[in-house]
Amino acid sequence: MRLLLIEDSVRLCETLSAGLSRVGFAVDVVSDGPRGLSYARLNPYDLIVLDLMLPGLDGITLLRQLRAGGCETHVLILTAKDRVQDRVLGLRAGADDYLVKPFDFDELVARLRALLRRRYGKKRPVFELGTLTLNSAEGSARCGDRAVDLSPREYTLLELLAYRSGETVSRIEIEDALYGEHDLPGGNAVDSAVCRLRSKLGELAGGPRIRTRRGRGYALVAGP
């Protein structure tokens, strides 16, 4: 899932970017307000993590302009401002969640995953695809009692296809969800990722299968 991190602390950007990438997010990092607004308008992000105290353009103004422009991306405000009126102001400006610094990294990830479920209209963190059980809260997949060994990127791909189970997901959408602006994927990177995940799913008895819709993309369907 593709995430935009708008945060002026370079150290925090680096840390969060490294951590979030490892749990499967494709992270783009921006350190000032004007560029953050520009990135959010131009790219189809699943989530935006927004600091309020930004050089150039403060987070609240950025958020208001974003919502005024019709952007529906879920936004989590991550800030040192901890007063109630600040939280109310942020939520009223269009934020979907609010987290105060200092924060727990696991809490941040859990909140981001919760926002993802909201994005795809899911309430339950666990959903089953045949014998495969996907836990979006933990970011893990199991087949029966056995954990399925997936890389963060494979899990993200499986989660994307699972969220849109039965639908055809285009190669572009998959690429946007898996790779950040600095990842520079190769021409067949999406195909390779789908191939690896398909292979792992094929080993699971009764698990879901990935079908290729020629010229349109891929779809996750129930297993045989």
């Binding site: 602390s9 150290r11 925090l12 840390t15 969060l16 490294a18 951590g19 490892r22 040192a80 610094k101 200092p102 924060f103 727990d104 990294f105 696991d106």
Partner: peptide
Amino acid sequence: TPVAELRAITDVARR
């Protein structure tokens, strides 16, 4: 903010 950075760093390093 530095405390937040420090906490994020330690959380990620531990994970």
